[in-house]
Amino acid sequence: MRVGQSDTDPSSVLHVPGLDAVVGGDVAYNGIHMWLAQTDSRARERWLGALDTLAALRPARLVAGHQPPGADKGDAAGIIDASRRYLTDFEAAVRVGGSAGDVVRAMNAAHGGRGNPYTLRVSAAAQFAPTA
C-alpha cells in the first residue's frame, strides 16, 4: 500500500494481516539514523503522516527497511514511535541549530546509539546547504 512520504515520495509498505505484520520499507527505521538529506520541513511532516498510517494498521511486527542485524521486529509500536521521535527531534534541532554540527550534536545526544552515523552527518549538512 502507498503511504506517501518517507525518505522518498512516494513510498509503499506491505501489510500482511494474516501474520499481523508490516514490511515498512523506508517509512520506519529501527536503530539506524534516518536518511533525511532529501527532505525539508514539509516532507518530514508528511513522513509523520506516513507513520500514522502504519500505526493505524496496528501490526504486532514491523520489519524496517533499515535496521541492524538481529534487530527486534516484535515491537511495531515502539519502532513507529522511535521513528516519529527521531523526525520531530531532527526538525527541532534544525530549527534551533545554526549549523550542521549543531544538529549532529543534538541528535547524537538524543539518538547516539543508532547505527550509520554517516547518514546523520549528510542529512544535517543537507539542511544548511545553499539552494540554487
Rank of each mutant, 00 (worst) to 15 (best):
G4C: 10
S6L: 05
T8A: 12
T8N: 07
D9K: 11
V13P: 00
H15S: 13
H15N: 15
V16T: 03
V16A: 01
P17C: 05
G18L: 01
D20G: 10
D20K: 11
D20N: 15
V22A: 02
G24M: 09
D26A: 15
V27L: 06
V27G: 10
V27N: 00
N30Q: 00
G31R: 00
I32Y: 13
A37G: 06
Q38R: 15
T39N: 13
T39P: 07
S41A: 14
R42V: 00
R42Y: 09
R42S: 11
A43S: 13
A43C: 02
R44H: 12
R44G: 07
R44M: 14
E45D: 15
E45Q: 15
W47H: 13
W47I: 12
W47D: 10
G49K: 15
A50F: 04
D52K: 14
D52I: 07
T53G: 08
A55N: 12
A55G: 12
A55H: 12
A60F: 08
R61E: 09
R61G: 05
A64T: 00
G65C: 05
A71Q: 06
D72V: 07
K73A: 12
K73E: 14
G78N: 09
I79W: 09
D81K: 15
S83V: 09
Y86T: 07
Y86C: 03
A93K: 06
A93H: 02
A93R: 02
R95H: 07
V96P: 12
V96R: 15
G98F: 07
G98S: 06
A100C: 08
G101Y: 04
G101H: 13
D102R: 13
A109K: 08
A110Q: 06
H111M: 02
G113I: 11
G113L: 01
G113F: 05
G115S: 08
Y118T: 15
T119P: 03
V122H: 02
A124Q: 04
A124T: 00
A125M: 04
A125S: 02
F128A: 03
A129T: 08
T131E: 11
